[in-house]
């Protein structure tokens, strides 16, 4: 078995790397006292560990895809 299209994967990695480098090249230094907006609840990467885990569990058990921002845990007999 193999990945369907390795070029898609390679292009994806290149695209994300370019996006990241582009974003980082325009980074402005933000003073510590000026980071209040970054601490807003709406700026978090997920809505809470437990909720993110539950949502991930639901989607993973109903879709062929998995993974993202973290490594996998144990499986289940969800059919």
């Amino acid at each position: 078995m193999r990945y369907k299209d390795r070029s898609h994967l390679a292009r994806g990695i290149c695209l994300l790397t370019m996006l990241y480098l582009t974003a980082c090249s325009s980074v402005k230094t933000v003073a510590p006292y000026d980071r209040g907006y970054l601490a807003e609840d709406g700026m978090k990467w997920d809505e809470g560990t437990r909720n993110a885990k539950l949502k991930g569990h639901v989607y993973t058990s109903k879709e062929a895809s998995s993974g993202g921002a973290g490594s996998a845990g144990g499986g289940c007999g969800c059919n």
Partner: peptide
């Protein structure tokens, strides 16, 4: 048996913006 790994980085872009990218393998 399942083994999984993740590597990612997040970056403050400005006083109101932040971004991240990541790669995971299972």
């Amino acid at each position: 048996d399942t083994q999984s790994a993740y590597f990612g980085v997040s970056q403050i872009l400005s006083r109101t913006a932040i971004a991240r990218i990541g790669l995971s393998y299972t």
